[in-house]
C-alpha cells in the first residue's frame, strides 16, 4: 500500500532522513522504531504530503500523498495533540469529518462511532480543554479514524498516556488491525512495537538500520538469552558453564530452558534463576551501540 523509495529530507545542515526505503503491505501493522529525533515524524510528514522530500518518492496506492484523492484515504494522529480545546469532542470530530467530505446522517453516525471508540460518549459535549491527557490522546486517534481511512498513521500515540488509556489504545489498534486496516505506527517504546507490529523498521539519525519481522530481528540482532541466578549446590567434580562469582551465576544461551533442564538433571541446584530473553532494545543496542532511550 505504501512504497517509500530512497527518500531524503534535510533541514539546513541537519539530515533528518537519509535515503530511507521501505514498503507497507495492505492490512499490515508496520512499526517505525527509533529514539526521539531519529526521523520518524519527518517520515510520517512526508508520507502524508506535509513535507516534500528533497530526494526520492513516496506512493500510497500508487499515488503521491500530496494529491487530495490520496489524502482522503489516510488518517493521521500526530504526536502533538491536534485538537481544538475550545470545541467539544463531538464538534472536533464533526469538523474534521466534514473536511473529509462527510455530511448528514453518515457524519452523525461516524461521530457517534468515534465517540464510542474513544469511550467519550458521556463527554461528547464537553470542551476538550477540560479532558485528561489520556482522554485527549484517545480523541486524537478517534479524529484520525472518523472518516474511515484505509491507512492509519499513528505518530507516538501513547506519549504521556496513563497505563489504562495505553491498554485501551492497544486494544483498539489490535481490533482495527484484525479488521484489515493498514497501520503505520511510530514509537520509541520497543514493547509497543513488539506487541502490535508485524514488521518493524529500526531507524536512527535518519537512517534505516534494519527492517524485518520482530522475530527475525531478534534472531538476527538480538543475541542470546541470558540466564542469571544464585547457586545453592554444585555437584562434586562438575563445574557450572558461564561465569560464577560469590554464588552469583550468569550464562548466555540460545536455548535457556533446555540448558537449565540439563543442569538440573546433572544435580545443580539454584536459589533463584532468571532468564532474560533478547528484545528490540537489545536489537537496537546491537545495531547502534546505544540504548533506545539514551
Amino acid at each position: 500500500m505504501i512504497k517509500v523509495n530512497q527518500i531524503e529530507k534535510n533541514y539546513g545542515a541537519i539530515r533528518a532522513v537519509q535515503s530511507i526505503s521501505f514498503g507497507v503491505n495492505r492490512g499490515e501493522c508496520f512499526g517505525l522504531l527509533g529514539p526521539n529525533g531519529a526521523g520518524k515524524s519527518t517520515t510520517i510528514s512526508i508520507l502524508v504530503g506535509l513535507l516534500t522530500p528533497d530526494r526520492g518518492s513516496v506512493l500510497v496506492d500508487g499515488q503521491p500523498p500530496s494529491k487530495e484523492s490520496t489524502r482522503i484515504r489516510i488518517g493521521v494522529a500526530p504526536q502533538a495533540l491536534s485538537l481544538y480545546g475550545e470545541l467539544t469532542a463531538a464538534e472536533n470530530l464533526k469538523f474534521f469529518g466534514q473536511l473529509y467530505g462527510l455530511t448528514g446522517k453518515l457524519l452523525k453516525e461516524r461521530v457517534s462511532w468515534a465517540l464510542r471508540l474513544a469511550a467519550l460518549e458521556d463527554r461528547a459535549h464537553h470542551r476538550v480543554n477540560t479532558f485528561s491527557g489520556g482522554m485527549k490522546r484517545r480523541l486524537n486517534i478517534a479524529v484520525a479514524l472518523v472518516h474511515r481511512p484505509q491507512l492509519l498513521l499513528l505518530d507516538e500515540p501513547t506519549v504521556g498516556v496513563d497505563p489504562q488509556s495505553r491498554n485501551h489504545i492497544f486494544e483498539w489498534i489490535e481490533k482495527l488491525k484484525s479488521e484489515g486496516l493498514t497501520i503505520l505506527y511510530t514509537t520509541h517504546y520497543m514493547e509497543e512495537a513488539q506487541r502490535l507490529c508485524d514488521r518493524v523498521a529500526i531507524i536512527d539519525q535518519g537512517q534505516l538500520l534494519a527492517l524485518d519481522s520482530v522475530e527475525q530481528l531478534l534472531r538476527q540482532h538480538g543475541g542470546q538469552s541470558v540466564i542469571t541466578g544464585t547457586v545453592e549446590h554444585v555437584p562434586p567434580n562438575k563445574s557450572l558453564p558461564g561465569v560464577c562469582e560469590h554464588e552469583k551465576w550468569r550464562m548466555e544461551s540460545n536455548n535457556p530452558i533446555q540448558d537449565l533442564a540439563k543442569l538440573a538433571s546433572d544435580g545443580f541446584k539454584f536459589h533463584t534463576v532468571q532468564i532474560t530473553r533478547p528484545d528490540l532494545e537489545s536489537v537496537f543496542l546491537a545495531l547502534t551501540g546505544k540504548r533506545l532511550r539514551d
Binding site: S45, V48, G49, L50, E68, S69, R71, I72, I74, V76, P78, A80, L81, S82, L83, Y84, G85, F96, L99, Y100, G101, V143
Partner: peptide
C-alpha cells in the same frame, strides 16, 4: 502551535 494546522494540512484540502 497546537498542532491543528498539521491535521488541516493532512486533510484533503489545498
Amino acid at each position: 502551535s497546537q498542532g491543528t494546522l498539521v491535521r488541516l494540512q493532512a486533510a484533503p484540502l489545498s
